[in-house]
Amino acid sequence: MSQQVQKNGVILAKPMFVTFDAYGTLYTPKKPIHELYCSFAIEHGIIPESSDIQVYEQRFLSAFKNNFSKYPNYGKNVVGPIRLPQLDDWWDLVIRDTFDLSHGGEVASTTYTFVQDLLADFKSTKVYDSFDDVVPLLDWLRHHHIPMGVASNTDRNAIDVLNLFGFLKWFSPENIFLSYDMDVLKPDKLFFDKIRQAATPDEVAPSSCWHIGDELSKDFTAAYNAGWSSILVDRQNKHGFFGSQMGKLRSRIVNDRQVVVRDLKEVSNVFGATE
């Protein structure tokens, strides 16, 4: 590979290190989270079958936001009257707040079983699917000896899900960067600075580090603002980069450090231009 190449008349940097967002990029829930929560709640008799499921969408979002505000970073290093020694203790709070379940006193056995089963199932194929365009790209990158990593705003439960789909064989432990461990969140520039310092030699330019993700602000724009090159994978044309040509275009080069693709299969074509 050369250091720079042209694709459609635009010069792109050679990929020396590639990171992936996890949730929404490598894997995805089979249904919206609040619907999955409610399905389990109905099964365990926590809410009736006649419940308005959409009400719980806002309840879940509020529970997540409020607990992340009170106990930042999934409760890591929390001090004070409430201690959350285990990661699942933080998610326990979110689940109970979503369904207005008691936090103290004697816990009903059905409530305890519901929470524990829900936590366990969120590390299983009952909840998540992987995208079928992931493995071909990971194989292509490995074949071309391009180092890879995971860079995601999430907790360590993500490692269980990555392992569930066999993705860990492509990512070495030292190249899995989670906001939980890093104590910083995307879109903060420091998130990407820390990764580059830890994973690449000093001579590797920021623009030769590529980040791939599905979120416009936290992945595509944030990596770009940190000096990286970035790829937005937009499988449903959610952000409108393909306009009315969604069925025809497979990728769109926005500038010399930003590319939008329909799926991950197209990334090898983008990077292949650097060979």
Rank of each mutant, 00 (worst) to 15 (best):
A198M: 11
V267E: 11
W228Y: 14
R262V: 07
N175H: 14
I231T: 06
E266Q: 12
Y224P: 01
T221W: 02
W210T: 06
R250E: 15
W228M: 11
M182C: 08
R252N: 07
P187K: 01
C209F: 00
V254P: 15
K169C: 14
L168Y: 01
V261K: 00
P206A: 12
H211L: 10
F192W: 04
L249K: 10
G247R: 03
G227I: 11
N237A: 10
D183I: 01
K238P: 03
K186H: 00
S229D: 08
D188L: 09
A273K: 04
L168T: 15
Y224R: 05
A199V: 05
K189A: 15
T200E: 04
L185V: 08
L249C: 06
F165S: 07
F192H: 01
W210E: 10
R262H: 14
V184H: 02
V204T: 13
W228E: 05
E275D: 14
H239F: 14
F242Y: 03
R257W: 04
L185I: 08
V259F: 03
Q245W: 00
E215G: 04
K194S: 08
N225C: 12
H211V: 10
Q258R: 13
K218N: 15
S179E: 05
K186E: 12
Q245M: 10
V270S: 06
